[in-house]
Design a protein around this nucleic acid. Structure first.
Length: 556
DNA sequence: AACAGTTTCAACCGCAAGCCA
DNA sequence: ATGGCTTGCGGTTGAAACTGT
């Protein structure tokens, strides 16, 4: 138990430990008289005093609590205790599914505006919501899942388009929309809070109409694009992470296969290495997004075409919108010392690399809700396609690099075959896979158990059952997703992974994770001997967009 | 059972806005 | 206009609880 004087409320002048939960009022009752103020956990007697005080005097004037109640707590502490624990009508316990969904929705809309979010969740405190969200971020990061359900992004986008079509921008939280009254996963005014009254930014919103969501999602808008970095991350921290994430020749960026670094703490190490070994010989850097040549520490390519851009294609594809990191120096990518692998992965998910071509065109709605970033990214992609020439000579990645990349086209074309016909945008493969592999859960937090490749247990990620694409739902009826064998043998699985059949990656992966050869049986595949080159681009796309290899652990 | 690693959550801190004298 | 005070907010910390080995 620590104590401090209230001579400086925020600056602790002295601390010491005491056995006594409460300080004797005789120590001094004046709030300005250097009274020792207690810190740390509240005791029930303190709570009682505070409750009694509020009953008598009402809320507010918290600095007076100490005077009138004998509590040796600073006003701030009293207010916090009251607000978070003592006030009536507080809802305690785990968030319900509806609440969780609402939080996600609200966060997409507001960003880290915990207090505002709390006002939409009766009985919940900003602190609770904040803690929940931070936990969620960690979990989803670790699992390699997007922060937001793809549908949320789509919905935001559609809302935007509707706004365009009806001659106006859907403007943010106007204080009228009460999400509690929204039946479904509706986010009518999501996204554009930060765009109001900013014509420059709005201009890119209009550009959005040039591209479909399909384009956005399929041409490099991998799921990780909408696992946007939360704005909670300090700029300085972002910078550090951004540089950490792009060490020179080592690691995720270099090989363009970021998520697979997660294998490195796992027996799946073998998988990671097998990827490198399997693919390198056949890769054509001009066609593939990836470069597995670990010798490319200078980011140069065999064809001499590019510098930093090509090898990090995959990274950029996987990354978050650059708009939040315009200040990060691209040049630092290759100079920072290699970070710990897992940190790297986490940071990689969280902190996108800056992309010069991206940052050049638009101002960044940095402080807006996270989905703003998606829109921003979409605009960047769009504009990048329009100005491909400009970026070709750039040392940084540009959207056109991605757009021009034949692999992506392959990816898109092939994915069309697998695209969910009912879903308006074919449903991202991420959601598809996420949902496939976690579809057995009925609760938002109740999918099958998942383990990360760090070996630590990760709380399963929410499943948005009602967001399941039709095909998945249909398949779900016929397949027991709680049973890996059933899933692996199902048509759904076949469809999902059919794209990567033929080269044995999946087989190897599963076999590795299983520690046996059963995967080959499940996959009905020839094993690693099959040619890779034709399929690699699309394969990569699938893996790229697929969450997470980690999710293979869900399967197994 | 003991230990270590991880997660959760209550509480603290610093800052900023609003109010008022 | 200014400075002090109060309140509110968002980020961070650290202890407790939990889980795996």
């Amino acid at each position: 138990m620590s104590w401090t004087t209230n001579e400086s409320e925020d600056g602790v002048l002295s601390k010491y430990h005491s056995e006594s939960p409460l300080i004797d009022e005789s120590n001094g009752g004046s709030s300005g008289g250097g009274v020792l103020l207690k810190k740390g956990p509240w005791t029930s007697s303190e709570d009682a005093l505070l409750v009694e005080y509020v009953k008598k005097h009402g809320e507010g004037n918290w600095n007076a609590v100490q005077k009138h109640s004998g509590l040796s707590r600073c006003g701030k502490s009293c207010r916090l205790r009251w607000a978070n624990h003592l006030r009536p009508n507080l809802r305690k316990g785990a968030f319900s599914q509806d609440e969780e969904r609402l939080i996600i929705e609200l966060h997409a809309k507001m960003g880290n505006k915990w207090a505002r979010m709390a006002s939409h969740l009766p009985g919940r405190t900003d602190n609770e919501i904040k803690n929940y969200w931070n936990t969620r971020i960690k979990r989803r990061q670790r699992a390699g899942l997007p922060l937001y359900p793809p549908d949320l992004c789509l919905q935001a986008f559609q809302e935007n388009q509707q706004g365009q079509n009806t001659g106006g921008i859907s403007c943010g939280d106007r204080g009228q929309h009460d999400p509690l009254q929204v039946n479904s996963f509706e986010i009518p005014d999501v996204v554009f809070d930060g765009l109001k009254a900013n014509t420059e930014v709005l201009s890119y919103v209009s550009d959005l109409t040039d591209m479909s969501m399909n384009t956005m999602l399929l041409k490099g808008m991998s799921p990780q694009y909408y696992s946007f970095v939360p704005p909670t991350i300090h700029r300085q921290k972002r910078l550090r992470e951004s540089s950490d994430v792009f060490p020179d020749s080592a690691g995720c960026v270099q090989n363009g296969f970021p998520l697979f670094d997660q294998f490195q703490n796992d027996p799946g190490d073998k998988v990671a290495s097998s990827f490198g070994a399997s693919f390198r010989p056949d890769l054509d850097p001009n066609k593939s997004l990836l470069s597995f040549d670990v010798t490319q520490g200078d980011h140069s390519l065999p064809n001499g075409n590019s510098s930093a851009s090509k090898p990090i294609h995959g990274a950029v594809k996987l990354e978050l919108p650059s708009l939040q990191y315009p200040e990060t120096d691209l040049g630092t990518w290759g100079t920072s010392p290699p970070p710990p692998v897992l940190e790297s992965v986490d940071a990689f998910i969280q902190s996108p690399p800056p992309v010069g071509a991206f940052e050049s065109d638009c101002s960044s709605p940095r402080n807006s809700g996270l989905l703003d970033a998606l829109i921003h990214e979409a605009k960047n992609l769009s504009s990048g396609q329009k100005h491909s020439d400009k970026s070709k000579n750039s040392s940084s990645i540009s959207p056109s690099d991605m757009a021009d990349n034949g692999t992506l086209n392959v990816c898109e074309n092939e994915w069309d075959e697998y695209r969910e016909p009912i879903s308006p945008f074919g449903h991202s493969d991420t959601s598809f896979m996420n949902e496939c592999f976690s579809a057995s859960g009925s609760s938002l937090d109740d999918p099958p158990s998942a383990e990360t490749f760090t070996g630590s247990v990760v709380k399963p990620e929410p499943v948005y059952a009602d967001l399941l694409p039709y095909k998945v739902r249909e398949s779900k009826r016929q397949t027991d997703f709680t049973r890996p064998d059933a899933l692996l043998g199902s048509d759904l699985f076949e469809q999902s992974f059919g794209c990567i059949r033929g080269h044995g990656i999946m087989t190897d992966t599963i076999a590795t994770l299983n520690g046996d050869n059963s995967a080959a049986d499940y996959m009905h595949l020839p094993s690693a001997s099959s040619p890779l080159s034709q399929e690699w681009g699309f394969n990569y796309c699938v893996w790229n967009n697929m969450p997470p290899v980690c999710h293979m652990s869900d399967l197994l």
